[in-house]
């Protein structure tokens, strides 16, 4: 899932205080699970903004709504009238949702109501942990299922560096050393010798650094080939 965190109210207020009709739009998938941007959070934030407006003596109407996912067009249909009737939409989706909404919202600005943090999992209730960097060219089969790109502070491919101590990373006693975990896990799996080989420099072009990425499934996007029967019928 994509994990996000709520932005400070003051920061949001600074973004939207010049607008009269505000729509706070929640997203009920990933960011709802991490209590940052679901329908419930949209409702609470809308109330807070109404109070803020009232305290500041600004006449602003703040409405709220939420859709299942702000990353797929079909879910937007029911709220598009509401979007068009607003001066600004504060999207509580991840950055994907904000971008996607901006594409659809015409001349209505789409602002981010949360900070998108990372791809992660729910370690336990209230704790979300980054586990993947979405870099392309996955090598988890070589590292015991533990990602050195996302989980090592230096994203090194031949770790651990000299900064690991008691299984923790040099940057903080609260951060596990990914390479310590990898070595221990590979020992357990009986595959430690896989780590004896030097991993070559990574191809980062499949990641954030190769330009914007796109996946195209041609079997879905390609136009249906004309049916042969029909073609021959037409020719007759």
């Amino acid at each position: 899932m994509i994990v996000g965190t709520q932005k400070p109210l003051e920061e949001i207020w600074d973004m939207i205080k010049g607008f009269r009709k505000v729509l706070v739009l929640g997203c009920n998938t990933c960011v709802a699970i991490c209590h940052a941007g679901g329908g419930k959070e949209a409702e609470i934030l809308a109330s807070l903004l109404r109070m803020k407006a009232s305290l500041s003596g600004v006449e602003t109407t703040v409405r709220h709504a939420a859709i299942e996912r702000q990353c797929e067009s079909e879910f937007f249909e029911p709220v598009m009238d509401e979007v068009r009737a607003s001066d600004v939409v504060l999207s509580l989706a991840c950055g994907v949702g904000v971008n996607f909404l901006a594409d659809k919202a015409g001349d209505i600005p789409a602002f981010p109501g949360i900070d998108t943090a990372f791809f992660g999992a729910v370690e336990k209730a209230g704790i979300f942990k980054e586990l993947c960097a979405g870099c392309g060219g996955c090598i988890l089969h070589l590292t015991g299922g533990i990602c050195p790109v996302a989980r090592c502070s230096k994203s090194i491919m031949n770790g651990p560096c000299g900064g690991t101590s008691d299984g923790k990373c040099e940057i903080s006693r609260d951060v596990d050393c990914a390479w310590y975990l990898i070595v221990e896990r590979m020992k357990k799996l009986g595959t430690l010798e896989k780590l004896f080989e030097i991993q070559p420099p990574k191809d980062w072009s499949t990641g954030l650094y190769g330009g914007p990425r796109k996946v195209v499934l041609e079997h879905i996007t390609a136009p249906e080939p004309p049916e042969k029967g029909k073609e021959s019928q037409g020719g007759m």
Binding site: K154, S155, I156, M157, N158, C161, Q199, P201, W204
Partner: peptide, 9 residues
């Protein structure tokens, strides 16, 4: 940070 290649590389 960069860490394009690591120290062994």
């Amino acid at each position: 940070n960069v860490y394009d290649i690591d120290s062994i590389q």
